[in-house]
Amino acid sequence: MAVRVFVLFTLGYFLSYFYRSANAVLAKDLSQELGLGPAELGLMTSLFYLAFAAAQLPLGSLLDRFGPRVVTPSLLLLAALGSLVFGLAQGFGTLALGRALIGVGMAAALMGALKAFSLWFPKSYATVSTLLVGLGATGGLMAATPLALLKEAVGWRGVFLFGGLVVALVALAIYLGVRNAPPGVAWPRSGEGGGLWEVLRNGRLLRVAFLALAFAGSFLALQTLWAGAYAYHLGLRALEVGNLLFLYSGMAVFGFLVSGYLADRLGTARVLLFASLLFALGLLLLLLRVLAPAYALMGFFGAFNILTLTQARELVAGHLVGRGTTLVNLFGIGGTFLLQWGVGGVVAALGYQAAFLGLLGLLLLAVVLYLPLLRK
């Protein structure tokens, strides 16, 4: 049963990662067919993250109360509907609605898995959780060169219409194939803690949350739109852009897979700080247009942002794991919305260099605020 729980939740997260990343390859097609400018493209794509973020705090309470077996597949069905709406869209409004529905629907893919894993794999939580994310992040690989080839064969609309069916099938498999907790393990009930208010008063957790905003937000804003759009801006062809995004996402898979192992042995805070600084180095190389090393560095070390969720679990009581992790994820995904949209606005007004310099400055500020967590 434990293996089945791991595999099915990994499938759900794979789909979440694919959908969040797909627009980077499809940016040119969407712009040309539907007449979207950089600001509209950034806003529409970022609606995934706005909707995703808006769902996080109520999602945490729902997961703590009802568990992921019901909550995760229920929301995935909304994502399936959103995929169909997106694939049939004829204008910006319908496209935006589909993207937002996908965002709400995918909101529980990772959080539900982490809630389940806190009970199914308590002794190896960091390692198993980052293994989930590493394998699930291959959805980003599928949304690079393979998606570019698939799009040429069936069109971008065909990708989303068929994808809606796949999401619905995975939702059904999770509902039928998993349990909230292992046999004999009681479901955690709220104790004397103050619930969400207790989580919001946790100053150390809020420092982690702000790092998630800058670190995860920059990593995902680039991976799922602007790394591809920037490469197109520099004159690269679709397959060349797909290859760069494949490098970014491929290195991210390796980063996810090793981040938990390193955190379990060297300490989460230390590893997070080191990775944040090396991601900043990747941003600097991007500013200098040293593309392949920049994409490799940002992909590999950017993946370590997942440790903000691991650290959230370390900073809250057991019955608050859902709310603590979703709070941090709210900042990370909300940051992705703000940064993805904001980069579009800055690019339209001042160009890519100014936009990427802004991301670098925000990340360095978050690192400075995070430093007290190095002290236990």
Rank of each mutant, 00 (worst) to 15 (best):
A355M: 04
A349N: 04
T45H: 04
V346C: 01
A292R: 01
R270F: 09
A294C: 13
G163P: 07
P38L: 10
L119D: 01
G250D: 06
T45K: 07
P183T: 13
G361Y: 09
V199G: 09
V368K: 12
G361T: 10
G87A: 05
F86L: 11
L284N: 12
A366T: 07
A229S: 13
G358L: 15
A303M: 09
Y232D: 03
L257K: 09
G318A: 13
I174M: 03
N23P: 13
S74H: 00
A280C: 10
L57Y: 08
A107V: 09
W187M: 12
P188C: 04
F215P: 00
V170P: 02
F9I: 03
P122L: 06
F246W: 13
A181Y: 14
A292D: 03
F6M: 08
L110P: 04
N305G: 00
G318C: 03
A148S: 12
F246N: 08
H319M: 06
N202E: 09
A348E: 02
F117P: 03
L338G: 02
A96K: 13
D264R: 08
G105R: 07
R189S: 06
L234Y: 06
L63W: 03
Y248E: 00
A148M: 07
R313N: 14
L359T: 05
V5Q: 02
